[in-house]
Write a protein that binds this DNA or RNA. Structure first.
Lengths: 194, 194
DNA sequence: CACCCCATATGATCTCGATCATACGGGGTA
DNA sequence: TACCCCGTATGATCGAGATCATATGGGGTG
């Protein structure tokens, strides 16, 4: 849900390819662009003066990242490809030039970010639920549509497990338990909530 | 860090007071405004057709919420005060009128949201760290400034515990263990990282 | 001053999710 | 066809964090 795969890359945007462990930018570099990951995986990490580093984010295909660079002079973290990746480079200069001509451009940006904020907050809230089955259930309910509510899965359970912060084993078990208890019904990629 | 307490409320924005359990808006209501919580606490919750509900977010003072309403016709969740609260109401109409005259207004909004996205992603990433002491340490490193890195605490450890998704007991214990191991030093509200 | 609330702090116990191990089946490929 | 990888699935065990209980000290209030 961070992803927005349908969006057309801006015509002016350029594609850049990265090999594994290649550096896209470094903390302190002039903030010249924001990015959209097309494929692969990119780590964003900040480090303290004494060498320790903290992973701030792992970007996945479809996500934009380093949006905050729009409003900063320099990047505040490193971006390093963990796997061969392709990123769309959206130059700040282009974007900001557009803004003055056409406010609609910023609105588009704001819209994407508003969606992200909502999504990220919901994900965080879900992680406050400790019990595995309750957590999974909350996730399913968020994704569910229709009456009776049901979810059309667009990913593997392993990916679901990662997203909700459980091991895949815990997730499969919760799934089995809920199915046995008749609280959900699984039909292929379709999950029906009772 | 979601907060932006320094920001001036827009001149056109109005203040509204809510009592505990008062409804600010309901899922399906026309999306007329976005909000900033000045004091108190507001729950955002979505419910499925069959009555179950999921907490999507708990807004805290200084935060804006329901930003996504800017780009939707109706609200997609309920907002209910959990305690007596004050919210600044920023009417969508006003905001969008501004946009056409002055793109700078949206840029301000985009800036706040970009910061939020970064912050929320970092929080989520921290919760992927399972060990309590490592999690706490990562949080401290993110907050730390200077060399040697140190943190000036602006909240209680209980609040820290909530933010990083641990019980206060686990947090105090991790704190003690790390202090005993000489990995941190605590001097009042100041925490020094070794 | 006496009182109370709350943040801080630590002990004891228990539960549940992490971890390790193993298995199976389907889809893709050599 | 045979092979392998990966997603799905489940058992056994362990340990870390949740939970419950209790204590202390400081700050604010009547």
């Amino acid at each position: 849900m961070n992803a927005d795969p349908g969006q057309q890359p801006n015509a002016r945007a350029r594609l850049r390819r990265l090999e594994a462990s290649e550096v896209l930018f470094r903390q302190g570099d002039p903030a010249a662009a924001i990015f959209r990951l097309e494929s692969g995986r990119v780590h964003l990490l900040r480090h303290t003066e004494d060498g320790a580093s903290v992973v701030m984010h792992v970007a996945r295909p479809g996500e934009t990242f380093a949006e905050a660079a729009l409003f900063a002079d320099v990047y505040h973290c490193d971006a390093i490809a963990q796997a061969p990746s392709r990123v769309t480079v959206i130059r700040k200069r282009d974007l900001l030039r557009d803004v003055q001509r056409d406010a609609a451009e910023v609105l588009k940006l704001a819209r994407v970010m508003a969606g992200q904020v909502r999504d990220l907050r919901a994900r965080l809230e879900i992680r406050n639920i400790r019990a595995a089955d309750q957590r999974l259930l909350a996730w399913l309910r968020l994704k569910a549509r229709g009456n009776p509510p049901s979810v059309e899965l667009d990913r593997t359970w392993i990916q679901v497990a990662e997203e909700i912060g459980l091991t895949r084993e815990a997730t499969y078990r919760a799934l089995s338990a809920m199915r046995r208890a008749g609280r959900i019904r699984i039909e292929g990629r379709q999950v029906r909530l009772a």
